[in-house]
Amino acid sequence: MTTPPPQPPQGPYGAPQGPYGAPPPPQQNPYGQPNPYAQQAPYGQQNPYAQPPAPGPQPFGHPQGPPPFGFPQGPPPPRRSRTGLIVGITVGAVVAAGSIAFGVSRLADSGVSAVGGGFPAAKYRLTVPKKLLDEEYTLLKDSSSTEGREIEKTYDPSIRDAKAVVTQYTSSAGGTLVISGLWGRIKGPEFTRDKILEGATQAKGMTIAVPAREFTPDGYGVTVSCQVVRAKDGAITSTIPMCAWGDDNTASFVAVVTPEIALRAPEKVDLERAALDTARVRAESRKPIGATEAG
Rank of each mutant, 00 (worst) to 15 (best):
P63A: 13
G65D: 07
P66F: 09
P67D: 15
P67C: 13
P68I: 14
P68K: 13
F69P: 02
G70R: 06
G70A: 15
G70D: 15
G70M: 11
G70T: 14
F71H: 14
F71P: 13
G74S: 10
G74N: 08
G74Q: 08
G74T: 11
P75H: 08
P75N: 12
P75T: 13
P76A: 11
P77A: 11
P77S: 09
P77F: 09
R79C: 02
R79H: 08
R79A: 13
S81L: 05
S81W: 03
S81T: 15
S81F: 03
R82L: 12
R82C: 03
R82H: 06
R82Y: 06
R82P: 01
T83I: 11
G84W: 03
G84I: 04
G84M: 07
G84Y: 04
L85W: 10
L85V: 12
L85R: 14
I86Y: 03
V87D: 10
G88E: 13
G88Q: 06
I89L: 15
I89P: 03
T90G: 15
V91K: 07
V91Q: 13
G92W: 00
A93H: 01
V94Y: 04
V94M: 12
V95W: 00
V95G: 00
V95F: 01
A96D: 06
A96V: 02
A96H: 01
A96L: 04
A97K: 01
A97S: 15
G98P: 00
G98W: 00
S99A: 13
S99G: 08
S99C: 05
S99Q: 09
A101W: 02
A101E: 03
A101L: 05
A101I: 05
F102G: 09
F102L: 12
F102T: 09
G103K: 00
G103L: 02
S105F: 03
S105L: 07
S105I: 06
S105Y: 02
R106H: 13
R106P: 00
R106F: 06
R106S: 05
R106Y: 05
L107K: 11
L107N: 14
A108N: 09
A108G: 04
A108I: 03
D109F: 14
D109E: 10
D109S: 09
S110G: 12
S110K: 11
G111F: 02
G111E: 01
V112D: 04
S113C: 08
S113D: 12
S113V: 12
S113F: 07
S113T: 11
S113G: 12
A114D: 08
A114T: 12
A114E: 09
V115M: 07
G116H: 06
G116N: 10
G116F: 04
G117V: 07
G117Q: 08
G117S: 11
G117H: 10
G117F: 08
G118P: 00
G118R: 01
F119T: 04
F119V: 04
P120A: 04
P120S: 04
P120N: 07
P120M: 05
A121P: 02
A122H: 10
A122D: 04
A122T: 06
K123P: 06
K123Y: 08
K123H: 14
Y124T: 14
Y124L: 14
R125E: 13
R125L: 06
